[in-house]
Structure formats: structure tokens, C-alpha cells
């Protein structure tokens, strides 16, 4: 009885979470002319036509590459700035930490649309229009607060005595940070790095407005711009979506432990 209940619950969760992915994949391997016909539910035979269509278009590969570059670049910057900042807030400030943390939350939660036009002007002034730099810079700003929040919690869990002992030993703050806090905070760095990567990978509004050609477009923009003259090319959209979800599936499978442990151990514990 319990087993059946478990199976039932699992079934619901599986169906709920996975069905859209399965349907996306099923659609992507249909023959293009059959996509707008239902039934049949399943393709009569597998076709790679949609996949070859998106790969024959060299811009798509460039778009994937852009996303990876922007994600890694912005994550690297925000990890450095964020870890240092979190250390500073947690160990160097006596007052004002609540104020800073709240301002960072405000930055994190700021409606992107409210800063998009002034930021566009800055990007334009810097000559960064339609380059990866514009996105790396802007994404860093918006993922730094995320990193600070996660790392602040991680550093707060490290006993203050450790810091004091090191100070008494005569170590400089920089040494303490790099030798003690940075290594101790690795799980937090991994999880905040993953969160930041996912944020950069998903961001849409800035990417949509700051880029105007495939030179700097990222995956979300690339997928949103798949359009035919009169209709959506659903076959190509689902093929492209399947392709970009595949690496995410792998990342999630392999980093699940870090993501969850990060959330549990050092994450937003409130």
C-alpha cells in the first residue's frame, strides 16, 4: 500500500517535471512537415532534419558559445568581488552590515526594466554595444549580490575565534582571507558560482536590448528570435531547446549535491 503510494507520488512528480522536456524532445525529432499535426502523438520515424537545420545555421553555435563565455566571465568576476565583499562585510564591518545586505538584496531584486535604458547608454558610451563585454559587466553586477548573500552566510558559520586567532598570530587580512576563509568557503563558492552561472545563462532582458547581432546574442535571445515569416518554426525551436537543455541536465545531475548542499549548508537560510 505504502509502496503504491510512493510510486504514485513519484509518478506525479516525474510527470509534472519531466513531461515538458520529453514532449520537447519528441517534437524535435519529428519530420518538419508533421509537426503541426496531432495525432499522431509520436513520430512515425525519427528525423534529424530540425537538428541539421539549426546546425546549418552557423550563428547558433556562436550563440551557444556566447552564452558560455558570458556565464563564465561574469561568474568569475562576481565570485572574486563577491567573496571578498562577503568577507569584508562579515569580518571587517562593525556597523552597517544590515544596510549593505539589504541594498544588495534591492540590487538583486531590482526590476531589470528600470535600469535597462540608462545601462544601455553606459554600454553605448563605453563602446561596448553588441559585445560580450556589455553582458559580462552587467551580469557581474547583478550576480555579485547573489554571491555575497551566499558567501556571507558561509563565512558567518566559520567561528569568529578562528579569525581572531589568526589576527593575533599577525596574519594580514588578505592572508586570512586567502588561506582560511577562501578554502573553507569552497562549498559556498561552488554553489554560488552555480547559481550565478544559471542566472547568466537564463537572463533575457539585458541580452535582448544590449545585443543586436549573433556576435553577442545569448541562448535565450537566440531562442526567442527563432521565428518564421508567418509562424514559429516549432521544430527548430524544440530542437534548439533540447540541445541547450542537454548540458543543463548533465550539470544538474553532476552538481546536484553541490547545489542542494549549498542551499542547505550555506544558502539563503533567512
Amino acid at each position: 500500500m505504502t509502496r503504491a503510494l510512493h510510486a504514485g507520488f513519484y509518478g506525479v512528480i516525474l510527470l509534472w517535471s519531466l513531461w515538458p522536456f520529453i514532449w520537447q524532445w519528441v517534437t524535435s525529432v519529428k519530420v518538419p512537415s508533421n509537426i503541426s499535426r496531432i495525432p499522431p502523438l509520436l513520430p512515425e520515424h525519427l528525423s534529424a532534419a530540425n537538428y541539421s537545420a539549426i546546425f546549418s545555421n552557423e550563428t547558433f553555435i556562436r550563440v551557444i558559445w556566447n552564452s558560455i563565455a558570458v556565464g563564465l566571465g561574469a561568474t568569475a568576476i562576481s565570485l572574486v568581488v563577491g567573496a571578498m565583499g562577503a568577507y569584508g562585510i562579515s569580518r571587517l564591518l562593525e556597523r552597517g552590515r544590515r544596510w549593505i545586505m539589504l541594498s544588495l538584496l534591492v540590487v538583486l531584486m531590482l526590476p531589470q526594466v528600470s535600469v535597462v535604458t540608462p545601462l544601455y547608454r553606459i554600454v553605448d558610451l563605453m563602446g561596448w554595444g553588441d559585445t560580450l563585454w556589455s553582458l559580462i559587466a552587467v551580469y557581474s553586477i547583478f550576480s555579485v549580490p547573489l554571491v555575497v548573500w551566499v558567501m556571507y552566510q558561509a563565512y558567518e558559520e566559520i567561528p569568529e575565534t578562528l579569525h581572531r586567532a589568526a589576527r593575533v598570530d599577525g596574519s594580514s587580512e588578505w592572508t586570512i582571507f586567502t588561506r582560511v576563509y577562501l578554502p573553507l568557503g569552497i562549498p559556498g563558492l561552488v554553489s554560488s558560482g552555480l547559481l550565478s552561472l544559471i542566472f547568466c545563462w537564463n537572463e533575457f532582458l539585458f541580452a535582448l536590448t544590449f545585443t543586436s547581432s549573433y556576435k553577442a546574442r545569448t541562448i535565450p535571445v537566440g531562442i526567442s528570435l527563432f521565428s518564421g515569416q508567418y509562424d514559429f518554426p516549432w521544430g527548430e525551436i524544440t530542437a534548439a531547446s533540447s540541445l541547450v537543455t542537454f548540458p543543463i541536465i548533465l550539470i544538474v545531475i553532476f552538481s546536484q549535491k553541490y547545489l542542494v548542499r549549498g542551499l542547505v549548508g550555506s544558502g539563503v537560510k533567512g
Partner: peptide, 19 residues
């Protein structure tokens, strides 16, 4: 300690390649 150095190095390498 070299592990975190390596992670940082990899990040920066990819980052620079990207740019």
C-alpha cells in the same frame, strides 16, 4: 591549497578566451 588556485585559473582562462 592549489585546488582553488586551479579553479580560479580555469575560470580566468576560459574568460580570457571568451573575450
Amino acid at each position: 591549497g592549489s585546488i582553488n588556485l586551479r579553479i580560479v585559473a580555469i575560470f580566468w582562462f576560459i574568460f580570457c578566451a571568451a573575450c
